[in-house]
Design a protein around this nucleic acid. Structure first.
Length: 269
DNA sequence: AAAGCAATCAACCGCTCTATG
DNA sequence: ACATAGAGCGGTTGATTGCTT
């Protein structure tokens, strides 16, 4: 009988195990990492934990206005392509951005959309003229009847999805919503048109063991890898009944798990 | 103080994509 | 060309936290 893989929240112990394993094995081949680490988790789960929480490249804390703006802008262009958007926000994960969008931005967009969809009869219709007066996209709508930036984007998006812009040129939209240059450091169209060229990403963590591992069968690896690990592996995965939870003799933290440089954030790790 | 509600975020699920044999 | 496994992605859920009444 094989023990079921663990689910749910990660413990500190598991985190440490994963960090040290990734430090040694690299952040690829997650099934392998999961197995060798002795964690009773799926590779998928390990990857997620690393990517969304343990990776030293990650930023913590609130989104900055610049980041907020970028998210808004990129979402208007790419839709729910979270990972793609995340590549433009170093230190932020797709999951984080996705959550953020769901809670903050979508709300804003919806607020604005409602206003756009049903403009006050007395005003000069929902034409571009009213949008032009709106303040910075991230200013809260408050009593201001004008749609916020998110609303503009939402409205524009609806039109674009249609394939029609209905006489409202993108250039104009950009002019209305783009913040001062120093805010994003981007040059609008050029910046976004390059698209896939923007591969700001962490290069996979290299590991001396890595090349070795990919050519080797698990059966063989199991024994051979034990000697590299800073903690003892229980009978674990190869046995029917992985026994104890081992304690780590090492003091590993995300910042000292390895000494390679992260290409995405330049953090020496 | 406590109950109810909303917001937030970590984690899982199912699907698709990609690399490899 | 096809099958398979692993990785990645987006959507969703559930637990936790913070706020309001």
């Amino acid at each position: 009988m094989k023990e079921e893989t663990r689910k749910g929240p990660w413990t500190e112990q598991e985190d440490r195990q994963l960090v040290s394993s990734v430090g040694l094995l690299g952040d690829r081949r997650w099934d392998f990492v999961a197995k060798v680490s002795g964690l009773n988790r799926t590779g998928k789960s390990c990857r997620l934990r690393w990517v969304n929480y343990l990776d030293p490249c990650l930023k913590r804390g609130r989104m900055t206005p610049q980041e907020e703006y970028l998210i808004l802008e990129l979402h208007s262009r790419w839709g729910n392509r979270w990972s793609r958007i995340a590549r433009r926000l170093p230190g932020r994960t797709d999951n984080e951005i996705k959550n953020y969008w769901r809670t903050h931005m979508r709300k804003k967009a919806q607020q604005g959309r409602t206003k756009v969809a049903s403009p006050p009869q007395s005003s000069a219709s929902s034409s571009s003229s009213s949008w032009q007066q709106s303040a910075h996209p991230f200013e809260a709508p408050s009593e201001n009847p004008e749609p916020c930036g998110a609303a503009m984007v939402a409205a524009v998006r609806e039109k674009r999805d249609d394939g029609k812009l209905e006489g409202y040129p993108m250039e104009q939209i950009w002019d209305e919503m783009v913040p001062p240059a120093e805010m994003t450091g981007l040059s609008r169209y050029e910046e976004f048109c390059e698209d896939e060229a923007c591969n700001i990403s962490c290069s996979p963590m290299s590991s001396p063991l890595w090349d070795y591992s990919r050519d080797t069968s698990f059966g063989k690896i199991d024994e051979e890898f034990k000697m590299f690990l800073p903690f003892s592996i229980p009978a674990w995965s190869m046995e029917e009944n992985p026994a104890d939870t081992q304690t780590l003799p090492v003091h590993l933290s995300p910042s000292n798990a390895s000494s390679s440089t992260c290409g995405r954030c330049s953090i020496i790790r």
